[in-house]
Write a protein that binds this DNA or RNA. Structure first.
Lengths: 345, 345
DNA sequence: TTGTAAGCGTTATCAA
DNA sequence: TTGATAACGCTTACAA
């Protein structure tokens, strides 16, 4: 195991000291052209890349920002990753990316790792964290952002969506459009699914209707949606509206409807949540609630870097409004009503 | 901006030296119980987590492995991420995860970042890298793995699939089953799509049939598949088989067929590639080629850590066999034939 | 334009 | 069981 090349080796090859080589990377203009060329040759020959660890260590900034998402396979988080990536790049920082699998313990371990790398800031999804996670982040005294869910106990920046109010309003609106047998299809893995379910159930009860929620422990995907829909159709009266926790479940439900030859949206409307791109691929295309994930992440990152620069960090809660992603899986009337309801939320 | 807490602060609170605190974390048994408790109290109170940067710097190992995937939204890479994650955890290393967006330049920058963090090993997807990337990785003299595509110029461990041979064989088999108007639907972003296309076209030509390939620059997703299928159906003769570069495109094509009321698999069979979970959600369920991504990644990681431990690293190429993911979008006869063809590849 | 010395926060090593 | 010292590889501050 030969020792890795360092500034010293390059310095020796170029016949200068390490300091000059350091300058070659940091402030090339302060190195004489002739010297510069000799150093460049040595760098070229060796493929040398200076270690950032020493400066991460000695400076107060490591130039690193951590982002922990629950899942990589869920399209919702792709937008967040992209926004964070771009923001980090724009600010000359690198993004340390991890996934928790919706497990607060895993998140705890990742946060510990990020702090051990001396990350300058941490971005989390959701508001469910272990006590230890919260304590560590607080005492680290670095900017923290929580995305998607809003919380009354923010660790710092809390930008998100009030999912409960959203589904309450949507359900009420659909009832107003004449739907009576609205069913909610969830998937337990994501804590946000419970908030949505609660909103739905409250609205149903307030209207004197009986809520009917189905969910599963399985990770949400098309198959889950299809299976839940098949189950709904096989037991009890056929619903006239299927409200889904997300687009995956909704698309699965839509596929099941097609194969059961249930006419959508006449007999039954199907509505998803998130507004992922594949909504348009369905036939009929899926009506969904477009959550402003990218905007949330962008705004949060901007504020995060501002706080990082200023050293300040007052807790801040901000709720975002959703819009309707139009399609063919609900009636025009419903879409019109939903659109209006969302814009006044 | 107050200075972050370090070993010294904890040491002071506990009335010991930094060294004792360091031992508390590294070899707790070598610290007297009473001392241990005082240190524990200080750690608890401050939420202190020791920095790993100094030891990353001074040891020859940083305890860090880099993984660069082209995309997070493509389900293919989820398996690879999971496998790498588990392998890293099992070996006490942490995974530094990045995505290139299928851009070799972005990959180059990420590799540079990984090397600047002194990653102990790097895992890449595919075999397309810039010259600079290759040179840097070579001179870094660390274990490198390339997954999915096999290459004749490996940087180290090259475990993957011969996509060209695979699609050549599949196409031949389908022709053997009586399909004559086989169409290939691709998506340009992934270089592997070209290999698959080449295999398909060679087989068609060898059989005296005219290849018909459609593709797009758009990032592959359901909508792309749907649009390509709609285009195919609107121009020229209706194909009797649609071979797709991946499952996303295939599912989109299937959805288009449903809406066009083309009977699958009687009139036309649809076949995907990768065998992602959502194949089962389609109706009929999608027939696909299951690529052993997880196995490839697991095997590669195991070898990677072996090489890391031993210090050796001979280049190694290994091709993996695919299996058929059965479903309803191809005839029984076709599935039987494909299954046999794959097992003899 | 280049060099020298000190220090970043941890751990290995040796000493007590 | 605990402590003192040096070292890791780089950058800042100062000197030449």
């Amino acid at each position: 195991m030969k020792k890795r090349i360092g500034l010293s080796e390059i310095a020796q090859m170029a016949g200068v000291t390490r300091m000059t080589v350091s300058r070659y990377f940091h402030t090339p203009k302060s190195v004489a052209p002739a010297t510069r060329e000799r150093i460049a040759a040595a760098v070229e020959k060796t493929g040398f890349i200076p270690s950032r660890l020493p400066s991460m260590m000695s400076k107060s900034r490591s130039g690193t920002v951590g982002l922990i998402v629950p899942s990589f396979s869920n399209g919702v988080f792709s937008d967040i990753i992209d926004a964070a990536d771009e923001a980090a790049r724009a600010h000359g920082a690198s993004l340390l990316l991890m996934h928790s699998g919706y497990d607060p313990q895993a998140e705890e371990a990742h946060v510990a790792a990020l702090l051990s790398y001396r990350a300058d800031a941490v971005i989390l999804c959701g508001a469910e964290h272990t006590e230890l996670t919260r304590r560590r982040l607080k005492s680290a005294a670095i900017p923290v952002a929580e995305l998607l869910s809003v919380t009354s106990m923010p660790l710092g920046i809390s930008y998100g969506i009030d999912y409960e109010a959203l589904f309450l309003r949507m359900t009420k609106t659909l009832i107003g459009c004449g739907r009576k047998r609205i069913v909610y299809l969830g998937a337990q893995l994501d804590p946000r699914t419970l908030l949505r379910q609660r909103g739905y159930e409250t609205a149903m009860k307030e209207a004197g209707l009986k809520p009917r929620s189905l969910d599963t422990r399985r990770r949400s995907n098309f198959t889950v949606g299809r299976d839940l829909m098949l189950e709904v159709a096989s037991k009890g009266p056929l619903p006239d509206c299927v409200l889904c926790t997300n687009d995956d479940v909704a698309l699965g439900a839509l596929i099941a409807c097609q194969s059961l030859e249930i006419s959508v949206p006449e007999t039954l409307s199907v509505i998803g949540c998130n507004g992922l791109n594949f909504c348009d691929a369905a036939m009929p295309s899926l009506v969904s609630i477009k959550t402003p994930r990218r905007e949330i992440a962008e705004a949060a990152c901007q504020r995060l870097f501002e706080n990082l620069a200023s050293g300040k960090s007052e807790p801040e809660i901000k709720k975002w409004r959703c819009t309707l992603r139009k399609g063919g899986s609900a009636t025009e009337k419903e879409q019109q009503a939903l659109s209006e309801a969302l814009s006044s939320l």
